[in-house]
Design a protein around this nucleic acid. Structure first.
Length: 273
DNA sequence: AGCCAGGGTCTGC
DNA sequence: GCAGACCATGGC
């Protein structure tokens, strides 16, 4: 059996990107910082170890193909964030957040994992969300290697009862995870929504799932489907909007309001105030 | 002990 | 359409 050796893959210099901020700003839950500052990142049934040095990303034990075919899109490395930032900085209120959040990219995560993760997120806090997801993968996910597991497939979840899911301690959300798995399998809730579909219509396609309201649907659309016009409004964003944008976001920002949302969220949670 | 956490459902007005 | 109770669990 011939085993092809993988070497580290090192990217070109990336203009406007912060690995740390992108992973830690609350849009994903399955990543772990290692001793050397590298991150072990999971998405669906994939795993990678990635670090940042001198403006380049270093993907350990990764081929160029794996980078080009998956992780490049995952980290949204082809989008021109400098240009988006220039637009957002034309507004005084958004400029403050944009400067603080510089380098955050919106991830293109695995859609089913993102759906389940934000179902789990409801009325919950981030450390516990990570714990539930971790136990979910260990309980039902296919082993990748060592202690690493893939995210559970919809099929494996659909075979479960609420009692089967008790060990992950998701509480009242367990029944929602099962409903999501079933509706994804039948196609009643599609995870391949074309970009051309109106955002309100796309939200409706996901809110057919029990436990998925507008906020969770917008998180799935933004954080896994590249819908930069999705605008998740959690308690933080609602407060920020009421205080700073009582008449809503100005129209010129609507196509990238999801990005503006993430900057505002990060700034207000971690920045001054 | 009570409150809150990247919400949603169900009921009642 | 909108307010309020309720939902499991755990950290503070």
């Amino acid at each position: 059996m011939l085993v092809t050796e993988k070497k580290d893959y090192i990217t070109e210099k990336i203009g406007c990107f912060s690995l740390k901020r992108t992973l830690e700003c609350g849009q994903c839950f399955r990543f772990f910082e290692e001793q050397d500052g590298f991150y072990k990142v999971f998405s669906g049934n994939k795993r990678v170890i990635v670090g940042e040095k001198n403006g380049r990303l270093i993907f350990k034990d990764t081929s160029e193909d794996e980078f080009e075919n998956y992780w490049k899109a995952y980290f949204d490395l082809d989008r021109d964030y400098e240009e988006i930032d220039r637009l957002l900085c034309t507004d005084r209120r958004l400029k403050e957040a944009s400067v603080y959040a510089k380098g955050i990219h919106i991830l293109r995560q695995d859609p089913f994992e993102t759906l389940c993760s934000f179902i789990i997120s409801q009325n919950n806090n981030i450390p516990r969300i990570k714990g539930i997801i971790d136990r979910f993968c260990k309980l039902l996910g296919k082993p990748i290697s060592g202690e690493d597991y893939a995210f559970p497939t919809a099929e494996s979840i659909s075979r479960c009862t609420v009692e089967d899911l008790a060990p992950i301690r998701a509480g009242f959300r367990a029944k929602y995870l099962i409903d999501a798995a079933n509706k994804v399998i039948t196609g009643e809730a599609p995870l391949n929504i074309p970009q051309g579909v109106e955002i309100e219509r796309a939200e409706e396609m996901l809110t057919v799932i029990k436990g998925v309201g507008k906020k969770v649907a917008d998180c799935v659309l933004l954080f896994s489907m590249g819908r930069m016009d999705a605008f998740p409004e959690d308690v933080w964003i609602k407060r920020i909007m009421a205080e700073n944008f009582p008449d809503g976001l100005p129209e010129e920002f609507l196509p990238v309001r999801g990005i503006a949302q993430q900057y505002l969220y990060h700034f207000n949670r971690n920045g001054q105030k």
